[in-house]
Design a protein around this nucleic acid. Sequence first.
DNA 1: ACGAATGAGTTGACACTGTCTACTTTTGGG
DNA 2: CCCAAAAGTAGACAGTGTCAACTCATTCGT
Lengths: 207, 207
Amino acid sequence: MAKADRAKKNLREACLDEALALIEESGTEKLSLREVARRLGVSHQAPYKHFQSRDHILAEIVARCYADFAHHLDSRPRTGDPHEDMAEMGRHYFDYAARHPLQYRLMFNTALPPGDAHPDMTKQARHAFTLLRAALADLPDRAPVEGLPASVDLDALFVWSAIHGLVSVLHSDALDSVDIDKAALEAAIPGILARIGRGLGPAPEDR
Amino acid sequence: MAKADRAKKNLREACLDEALALIEESGTEKLSLREVARRLGVSHQAPYKHFQSRDHILAEIVARCYADFAHHLDSRPRTGDPHEDMAEMGRHYFDYAARHPLQYRLMFNTALPPGDAHPDMTKQARHAFTLLRAALADLPDRAPVEGLPASVDLDALFVWSAIHGLVSVLHSDALDSVDIDKAALEAAIPGILARIGRGLGPAPEDR
DNA sequence: ACGAATGAGTTGACACTGTCTACTTTTGGG
DNA sequence: CCCAAAAGTAGACAGTGTCAACTCATTCGT
């Protein structure tokens, strides 16, 4: 069978794929390297020749998610307009989260292995955030909040929080309990993007 | 020892306390009912006389977190001013998250046991959200986004998302990787609250 | 070209875990 | 007082991650 062939050729990659599939089926907590090995038709210790521990395979998967995520954000079409670019980035953010909910949860919604032990993972994460900062820095007419100094980082936190917050809420188990108006759910993404723009920007009339 | 005494008196409560302490030490995944029993000086099966399964003890802990959280939000001081009340609720939200990060993560950042199997848990969650909806409904001058119908639920999603998003980002392992300006971190909470207000409200000049 | 060294894969063991089942003890109500 | 239900105990089973020892193939230095 093809799976066994693949395992022979490149067990390392096959492990990563199979682990991801396994997480998709039953969640991060249930990920079992023994089950991965079983499905690949190798011994229960074979994966340990390629990954120090269960945490290390998780960290590598997450690092790849970050890289993929950043690439998705970065590959958005660019118009010249900074406002439009910002909104487009937001849409791409939601789009990624909608298309890869598993990966999104892995990055932001999981108890990750301690970052300092997995530097590549954190490096990929930093890169993704850099893209947001850059798009924001291009926005010409952000209006600072009275009493606080203007700061790209502060604004980036606002944008990231609002967008990530909505994604997180939409994916959340908690949402099921809360029975929100269905129409509100459908309008949530453009609604939030518009309010983010209003929250960032100057007085609405001159946009 | 007191712990053993307590165990005799009310093992059920003692289990919940000890489980929470255990989660605090080593995370949800590492929670082990056997370890709970061991620490309480009872047999490894004793907790199962009070909880059907590991999931059930988790669900009960989460339900209590929701109840506590809702109570914290609800016990904020009320001024007459709806805007001030909204902001105060936001501050109480952040305050709870800062003081009980473990509980917060448990509610919103954990793969919870399936909600339909634990109705009390979801009931408590719904109650907490109701409070936000109520505070929002009192806001007199929310300005709908052009092209979308006005909706309390939609606005509640925005507010909840932004606030929860910031909390989530602040707690996130991902934040460590991203090295944000320190000043921005300190100003984050008032900054976000102000931008939420601006995002919700009408044109800034008439507030 | 040949032996050593390295890496991949296997097998077996150990200490954990949750949960099933069967057993004993405690206890509270008729 | 007695007995049934509740609470607690003990043992077993199938999982798990991980350590250590073993085999086998490939490759690399001399």
